[in-house]
Design a protein around this nucleic acid. Structure first.
Lengths: 211, 211, 211, 211
DNA sequence: CTGTAAGCGAGACGGTACGTCTAGTCTTTTA
DNA sequence: TAAAAGACTAGACGTACCGTCTCGCTTACAG
């Protein structure tokens, strides 16, 4: 959501100077996204981004360390909104299924899903990317997911007391969806998602009874 | 398990010439593995493999299309054995937990796990790799896993009739483990694995009662 | 001797505004000189000059078209004084030798000589520089040299009538010195300079006899 | 005359491998020459040479350290032949004038002269170039020139005994020609060359009488 | 004594070339 | 004819300067 360099504040010197060109920034983000969809991750080169965005390479390197950072910026802008929990006053279980569907749709989405898959892929290749990806997006999303899930379970009177138990429940919900999408490359059907939600909520209820 | 070209049989031409140098093949496989562990995926270049294996680049290209194929060869040699189901005459549920632990250990293993992660990562970048990875290893392993899980559930009298239901149970078992390892980059504790197995087997029992 | 733009007078526009910052001008000239001595011609970049002079690039481009112009400004300030003929009432031939020694010393000088060599070098690379260098310094110096040589030869009663002959004599004096310094990269010994002067003056006498 | 790497002999290893591609070498030399004539020294970039020669940059860098080395290769191939002394059985003095004319023509030549001027220019900018230029061409040519001049003077019975005196005579011959061409950017007329030769030979005779 | 226009430090920008790296192909020689 | 050696074309890498531009501050004359 925020840019790579903290430069979008006051100019630190008493003096002046040009500010960051926002349209160039957006052009870079869009170019990277488009290239990813059109040519795949290997086609997302700094050269190609610069070319398509009509921007000098140096301008890209001034604001981003690598193409991964560019994709991360894209993910941060798209991901948070797309994966926000939508607490209404309806059926909590339906809400949970809805959230799982939203994740599934996000992962299948042409642009955002491609970025997500690419970043996971690159994180598997390179520890630095892994750290940036997790710190820059994944952990924040996980925190939001944990809060959302707790909210749902509390309304169903079966929220676990500990955070660890909640996290395990979350991973049992998200794990199969991610696994199918990321490793197997297949989608999860609505029925699967529904069964999954039911099963894990049932497990939470049982844990509640036992705990 | 076997190399890319069927050249380790009779020379297909009636004519002469030396046959494939098996020690060169092993040197290439080992070099790729070592480089992956020492320098990460980016350090696994054809150039570096050739150099370290003391082999000409052309020799590599003669037998493998890309470094992905080399890693796949490695995975096929290591993976099948490491992930084989080990049906004894003990407690089926303990056997299931054992299998999940074996997967967890495999994913954390320095060499084989690194290869696995790299291939999943590359599959996320490149559809061709994805296809090769799935056809060359993943689907076969999935077939073995389905058979193994069915065996366990049958001994517990709760195997579903359909293959689809069995696959869903499998993904609920493997999904969280892969998700934690591949996406979150964390391990699953033995307790988590045990709860997971119990929960999914319980789910299978319930499905049996309902179905 | 003076800067590129005639701005150090009245403001050409009827209107107001600050005048040229003389200390910035000197800082630029000095920075260019220092960089040339310390890092060679390749180290004399607009960026480096601006940096070292504590001046914005735009300020440099406002007053000079290129780094060559900056070096020319330096040369004009140093060169005319260093290469001025020094007509006393002593022996004319000694005076001539003295002038040749002055040239030799100038070419070997760390700062001024380096500028001179650099400009000759750049003139050999780029016709525009060649023109600016010749018009901005070389031809004026040549005029002064021709006058000085004529003065000396007249006092020796052997000045040629035509300008062309005088120029040829001048080139026979300066040519070997420049050649050794610029092309061969070596100095001319005092003895060589003395013989050179004697020989060319002798030649002038003979020309006089013949002509 | 010879290439940058000593690779055009036997392969140093007992083993095999491809040899240097001679046509690529010639294409590079020609491209550099053409670019120099068409676009000047600044237009001679590695990129442009590679492009015009239809050769990969890496191939250029494999065999030459810089564009200066390429130009030197060109100069060595062209220069020695063009500046060879041509001892016949005619008038020695005419032979000397002929040699000076050959130098003058060489310096004015579109291709070879441009290379020569560029290399002198670059030598003035960069000490490494200066050393390479002098060691790679200039000193060898100087040796040939000293031998040629001695031959001529001996046939005129006025060769100096010492090498230093001979070198001074040579510099008095070549100096004015180079000075006019390199510094002033003008040519020397045949009359000037003739007078120059006469004058220096006269000087040699006088030195003979004195010494 | 105040507005206004230029000079200035700062530095972002679109470019071009740099010299390096790896990919994948091709060629030569040895075994 | 496989294999080692390695030259070849191709193209991305990240860096350094180029010359242009915009920004906001400062300064000094003009009204």
């Amino acid at each position: 959501m925020t840019s790579t360099r903290p430069s979008t504040g006051k100019n630190p010197h008493g003096h002046a100077g040009p500010r960051r060109n926002v349209s160039a920034r957006q052009a870079v983000l869009d170019a990277a996204d488009d290239l990813l969809v059109e040519r795949g991750f290997a086609g997302v080169t700094m050269e190609a981004i610069a070319n398509r965005a009509g921007v000098a390479k140096q301008t890209i390197y001034r604001w981003w360390k690598s193409k991964v950072e560019i994709l991360l910026d894209n993910l941060e802008e798209d991901g948070e909104a797309a994966l926000a929990w939508n607490h209404g006053d309806g059926e909590p279980l339906a809400e949970l299924v809805g959230q799982l569907s939203r994740l599934q749709a996000f992962l299948r989405d042409e642009a955002a899903g491609a970025v997500m898959h690419s970043l996971i892929g690159q994180a598997l290749h390179d520890p630095d990317t892994a750290q940036r990806f997790r710190e820059g997006f994944l952990l924040a999303q996980r925190r939001r997911d944990l809060a959302g899930l707790r909210n749902v379970l509390e309304r169903l009177d079966c929220a676990p007391t500990g955070d660890a138990e909640l996290a395990e429940l979350l991973d049992r919900l998200l794990g199969p969806i991610y696994y199918r999408s990321v490793v197997l490359g297949i989608s999860s059907s609505p029925e699967f998602l529904e069964e999954l939600a039911h099963s894990v909520v049932g497990q939470a209820r049982e844990g509640r009874r036992r705990g």
